[in-house]
Design a protein around this nucleic acid. Structure first.
Lengths: 344, 344
DNA sequence: ATTAGCACTCTCGAGAGGAGAGTGCTAAAT
DNA sequence: ATTTAGCACTCTCCTCTCGAGAGTGCTAAT
């Protein structure tokens, strides 16, 4: 696979850079003008020809410059994007944002989305972290009106679920607190399966509450990741990739149809260890919606406990090196924050 | 203001309808061909001329048909959209969705957004309901790791806030529950101001918790409405109104910059009683972002207790009658659901 | 007050032509 | 054997023109 000569690699990378910058097909002459190459345009043309035959470049028409193909981008990203860290100025700006934000995931998630969007000129995707194993932490029952009860369920990891339960009989807050205390005693740090296999209880209220708990926990166990935060839509609306095509296959469906995003996350980053950044270029023949787009995704959080996905969706023509660096850095920050605030 | 003749009104409304249907300038001849009018095209032309002088229609160029102006749409909406109810089939389809959904605001909000988007071919906007007066309902403190405590605060209305507090000393869950019980005894159904004016306490832990409660409640009191749910972006991306213009003034900024939306909500529906539907056409000289767009917004929930805003954002050229009906109906449904599940 | 008829205006699309950009190839140079 | 200069060739893109067609405004007749 890696059978390009050094010179071919340089030319491919220059074409990618130049095309990213100008959005135009790149001519051999442009290359030797803009960059200091010690070879002539004719040589560049010959090499471009080879790269075209290899499938890494293509010509929009006979007498136009070259544009990288999907394969070209893929080769570029896997072989030539050196994982240099982000400039420290950028890192500081980003971490500063987190530092001066209010504390709490509910602030960090939209902040991460905003930072990613602003540093990438693409659409950001951030999902709230979620624990693979759903474990009971704490239950609270709060009397509201008449026989309605607000049930608040806290899971290990810190996710909070709420549900309104209608009882057959009106109960006092004391009675409710009593039941909640019983449930807490039995269930703390207990997994869904364990709770399911608890012996039946004669108390109908306790029964109803346990059923509701099991119901909520089952629901949570089916989630791939938590809520979606996104930002930077206006960054890409002017890009033809996002507005021209068939609305049936708009890449923005990824933001609106949760099942699409979940599928994408499940099939890429969820199978990876935290820390690895995945780059999907042009849908990889699997996601039709992503033609002409690229997705950079990674997983963040604490391995085996609480993790979410974060990254960006942008036109295929994007500054991969910088964007990958940003995604990686934001994920590192978020992992640290999640880890420091783990509820276990 | 209402000085149009009946015939002029008819012609204006036909132009609006036809333009909505075809997105093209409407010719006098088209009108008498498509609709059964007992007047000639020349008469229509004369009337169109008058309507143009009055500012309700305009010509894209000399020899083109007419297009409604902002003023034209405004006149049409205020004087000629009769508030006929939605067809019962549509109503049934919509209510069916709510009926077979899981119960809980967290399901109804995205559902409302989805229903609005699908029935309007526009972008939907739904904000979670929020209570104007922030009132304490219930507090829970949950020991996590070492000296970290997860504080869960429930407000009257059912909003749940969470925060992680770091204590100086490690406390047992008993001690924490004890403190929470104390706070609950003192604060239940108490307003922010009342809590603020509570006498100081010697207990440092109690003090820290109360400070955190006040902090969270202050934050809540500054919200205009809750979280934003939106759907149907792909509906409008192909519309030139949404992709052509300067990204600085894209109408979609309304979805990304919460301050814009809050301003819009505060200055329109929040001042109205629940039930009134507001139609903003073309930004009304106030919101530059909304040029060529219209926003239909209404407030839903329970007056003086818990209310949010919902509606749609679409191109100015839209089927107002149907869309207004949909927005009103969804708001009615949501008001009912909020009312049935009020936590007070 | 309404309408038929007609001249006038403007857009839109097709077609032509020329400039320019960029290539591929060939033959010479290294 | 590789690189390069030179050049013919191709294709796009812009502009211009021109004619067809759509739709109007005006005038004179009903």
């Amino acid at each position: 696979m890696n059978k390009l000569t050094d010179r071919q690699k340089i030319i491919l990378s220059l074409v990618v850079h130049e095309h990213t910058r100008t959005a135009q097909p790149v001519a051999s002459k442009t290359l030797i003008n803009e960059y200091t190459l010690k070879i002539s345009s004719a040589t560049v043309r010959n090499e471009m020809n080879t790269l075209t035959e290899l499938g890494f470049l293509r010509q929009p028409h006979t007498s136009a410059g070259r544009v990288p193909t999907e394969e070209g981008y893929r080769y570029f990203v896997s072989n030539m994007v050196q994982h240099t860290a982000l400039p420290s100025a950028t890192r500081n700006t980003i971490s500063h944002h987190f530092y001066q934000s209010r504390k709490g995931l509910e602030y960090w998630l939209p902040l991460a989305a905003s930072v990613l969007a602003n540093n990438s000129q693409a659409v950001s995707i951030v999902t709230a972290p979620h624990s693979e194993k759903v474990t009971f932490k704490h239950l609270e029952l709060i009397a509201t009106r008449a026989s309605q009860v607000l049930m608040v369920l806290v899971l290990v990891g810190g996710e909070i679920q709420q549900q309104i339960i209608s009882l057959d009989v009106i109960r006092s807050q004391e009675q409710l607190s009593n039941i909640a205390a019983q449930v807490n005693r039995v269930c703390e740090n207990t997994s869904l399966d364990q709770i399911k296999s608890l012996p039946a209880t004669p108390d109908p209220l306790l029964n109803q509450v346990l059923t509701a708990v099991i119901d909520q926990m089952s629901l949570a166990s089916k989630l791939v990741t938590g809520e979606l935060y996104s930002d930077g839509l206006t960054n890409v609306l002017s890009e033809p990739e996002f507005s021209d095509y068939n609305p049936e296959y708009s890449p923005l469906r990824l933001l609106e149809e949760r099942s699409l995003l979940d599928d994408l996350i499940a099939r890429t980053v969820l199978t990876e260890e935290i820390g690895g950044v995945q780059v999907l270029i042009g849908g990889e023949n699997t996601w039709q919606e992503l033609q002409n787009c690229s997705v950079i995704l990674t997983r963040y959080g604490v391995e085996d406990q609480l993790s979410g996905a974060l990254g960006i969706l942008g036109p295929m023509r994007m500054p991969y090196s910088q964007t990958i660096g940003t995604v990686r850095y934001v994920a590192e920050l978020m992992s640290g924050l999640v880890s420091d605030n783990l509820v276990d």
